[in-house]
């Protein structure tokens, strides 16, 4: 089955991102396809490479990046939600005159159309949120 995953909460404050990560990993291990993982609302905060959690805790951004790389996942961060919360790639940073970018490896910034398209193309869209 082809699944689309939506992550609507940031790491650590809510369990949503952890649950979405474990669900996605388990689905892949069971042989399902992942059409796209779409990060929205505070979920975009999963995609900053500047998070430095304590060493004895999980690093969710790193976990997502590694899972994305291993399975070639399309992990999309909503551009409007990302800009509100200070998640930028190099192009967006340049466009808005900012002195840094912080998008993590394996994530890309794109529009909400990618969320709708994932809903249309996948067999099931699964939302993780508060």
């Amino acid at each position: 089955m082809q699944l689309a995953i939506v992550v609507n909460e940031g790491p650590y404050t809510h369990q949503a991102s952890d649950t979405a990560y474990h669900f996605t990993k388990a689905a892949l291990e069971k042989g399902h396809g992942i059409t796209r993982v779409f990060f929205y609302h505070d979920g975009v905060n999963n995609g900053t490479r500047l998070t430095v959690p304590p060493q004895d805790d999980r690093n969710l951004q790193k976990l997502w990046s590694e899972l994305g790389e291993k399975h070639g996942l399309d992990m999309v961060v909503c551009i409007a939600a990302a800009q509100r919360r200070g998640i930028l790639d190099a192009d967006e940073a340049r466009r808005h005159g900012k002195d840094a970018s912080n998008i993590a490896a394996g994530f890309r910034i794109s529009g909400l159309g990618q969320l709708i398209e994932a809903g249309i193309e996948a067999d099931r869209l699964v939302v993780f949120g508060d």
């Binding site: 929205y40 609302h41 409007a80 509100r84 909400l112 159309g113 969320l115 709708i116 398209e117 249309i120």
Partner: peptide, 19 residues
């Protein structure tokens, strides 16, 4: 919270997909 406003943004973008 921003949920309602960002939900509306999805609805507006989604409208272009004629679902």
């Amino acid at each position: 919270t921003i949920y309602a406003l960002e939900s509306l943004e999805v609805v507006l973008i989604g409208a272009a997909f004629e679902q």
